[in-house]
Design a protein around this nucleic acid. Sequence first.
RNA 1: GCCGGUGUGGUGGAAUGGUAGACACAGGAGACUUAAAAUCUCCCGGUAGCAAUACUGUACCGGUUCGAGUCCGGUCACCGGCACCA
Length: 808
Amino acid sequence: MKYDFNAIEKKWQAKWLEEKPFTAVTGDKTREKFYGLIEFPYPSAQGLHVGHARPFTAMDIICRKKRMQGYNVLFPMGYDAFGLPTENFAIKNKIHPAKVTHDNVSNFRSQLQALGYSFDWDREVNTTDPSYYKWTQWIFLQMFKKGLAYKASMPVNWCTSCKIVLANEEVVEGVCERCGGEVIRKEKSQWMLAITKYADRLIDDLDEVDFINRVKIQQRNWIGRSEGTELDFTATNGDKLTVYTTRCDTLFGVTYMVISPEHPYLDQWKDQLKNWDEVQAYREEAARKSDFERGELNKDKTGVRLDGIEAINPASGEHVPLFVSDYVLMGYGTGLVMGVPGHDQRDWEFATKFGLPIIEVVKGGDITKEAFTLKDDTGIMVNSGFLNGMTVKQAIPAMKEWVTKEGLGHPKTNFKLRDWVFSRQRYWGEPIPLVNCEKCGWVALPEEQLPLLLPEVDSYEVTDTGESPLSKMTDWVNTTCPCCGGPAQRETDTMPQWAGSSWYFLRYMDPHNDQELVSKEAVDYWGPVDWYNGGMEHTTLHLLYSRFWHKFLYDIGVVSTKEPYAKRTSHGMILGEGGIKMSKSRGNVVNPTDVIAEYGADTMRLYIMFVGDFEQAAVWSTEAVKGSKRFIDRVWNLAEQAKDTYEETEANQVILHKTIKKVTSDVDDLKLNTAIAALMTAVNEMTANGATRGDMRTLLLLLSPFAPHVVEELWEMLGFAAKEGKMACQSQWPVYDEAKTVASTVEMAVQVNGKLKGSIKMPTDSAEEAVVAEALKVEKVQKATEGMKIVKTIHVKNRLVNLIVKPL
RNA sequence: GCCGGUGUGGUGGAAUGGUAGACACAGGAGACUUAAAAUCUCCCGGUAGCAAUACUGUACCGGUUCGAGUCCGGUCACCGGCACCA
């Protein structure tokens, strides 16, 4: 019989859908649980991409193996379906976004099923489903009630092309992450989520989870915790000038101060400044620049000296000039900075440009050339009163103590992380369930009115003033206040795409619950996610946001763990041929469906795992796919030619036990490429040895997570299905015997003075004397040791012997 | 600039400090075939040599070690993230 992948894959996919062998049972006390999660896709019109297949296949293999090891496995799938591309498609083609979403989801589902993934399809979720977004809205309301959601007028990132407010995270190199359009700053009233209140916990709890290091580091850097001091200078007009510094030890080195152009003090000082016009002109120019431009021009410091007000150093009592400059940001610290040009490179540049004195207060560098910024023990304090003679490490706490004692300030922790801009002026998102009443202000919708459904609109386009399309639906907008019953208006902004994905992993645990977002029983049993794999690009977005939401849900008692994910791994990108990024515009996007049509899903799965180290980027090669197909062909032939006995052979014992060991540990370590290489080695060797059905049984069990369809077929063909049931229902993973993983003889390397001279065959675990004796029989060894004295032998059991010789 | 990561044959990539290049792809030679495809067998880092073999080789320079792709110090290149965060 020929290997007809098409018929085989269709046959087993249909059976799996019908018989549901992958259904997870909540609270099965007889088995330990395993929750494997991959990031649910955005159902784009283009359909599944090979970039999806890599992480999905890997987690499918892990979950299939876990099931075989007896775990009760939750491996769900869903769709993160709100978002701009669907809305834009709807606008262009005048189709309702819900219809577009439905069609795209159907396409995704059939593509996913064609790859044979063992998802529990009964638990599918869709963020645009009202029964789902009801709970997204519910969580938002709880945050609102706890004061974590607030409305603030603030400069926002405005994409001139999408006409939408972007989160900081969505602005990449000064342009819109999605469309590449210009981003400008604009004042707008926005809903915000106070993620910064969780900043400490988001950093500290990273110590408790098993995330790959680069994810932890990137999150820590993004949150950007810094321990410093807030301390007060005084202005000559009596105003208090509070600065934030991490180098309070350099206080005696302050030669000037800088205030941010956006600082409210400046307006108050209007009448006291002799050069107000100049200051005001500078401020206006700074306001015109985008954040990006400000950053780009950072080499060239600009600023204006305030004429009329100076600052007084609290430590020395000296008067120093005060400048306005846009290198000081209003959004970080206090918007005021003390200038220490000797020990901060930016201040050094500013002082050099404006001819300000540079005082050395830490000895160790050459401050005529650049600022000396080391914070360790190399520098010694000078010109610094009571700090003189201390190292920087000693001076920082000493100064903190002094500042606190003198009532001049206090230690302070700052973060780079900003609160999350949570509203979007768009249609295709969750409506924000709040009502604005003239008397009562912003009022939460009563929970029994959830979900607040998206109304039907005539047009999905943003209004010219940048308001949400919902604002045009006056029937929907005008409502009554749940509090006082008076007239009120609904919020017309919607939530960002990151909302629905911030908690979806919880809904999978209990997807049909219409009373709670997840039952206590389900969350206690399934939580936390045991293994979550996803893209690095989500590290500071989705991954951080969902940790924040989960911590909030923990605080209000909905979930029982502090962290949502016990383990996080990340896959590398799949690049197009030639190592360039796949993109529609380059026309080098590989569609998994085409590969399946030509080679089958099992080949696709094997290839995408075999392509390289899972964590590294890999280059797609359509040529190389053949190798995976040939491997399956060889397995097929081996099975067909297998001797009709269920006995296992001695000849294949070592290779099979070795392979069990290797595949088992490699899957746990996410080294799927070498696991497949080990299976290939086993098949090559078994082909040479000849195999029985008994030998095939072990091989098929090991191969089944990788190539489930062909294995299911061969399992049946060789009579195992009749004896033991379907492969998909197996809860047995082969176990190896360490003693059987080693052959009776081993090949050992022989070296003389560390140089390889040949190899010898020895019985396993031979003693050193026997090995040395055998080694000395090797011709090249004799040549190399002639006239020499062996002064030392190094014997590594079963691997090598190294003879160290010296002339006699 | 700061923080990560990576650098190994023609290609993708393997190697708990222990025979570098597993496993594949491509290529070459041969078998089967009327022929092609498929399949099977062998070869396949470089230099020299008919060969046995010798030397050399994991970005570069140095060190530790009986032994280094692997550990340590320094340099370079590329990729990703952050970027005036005081």
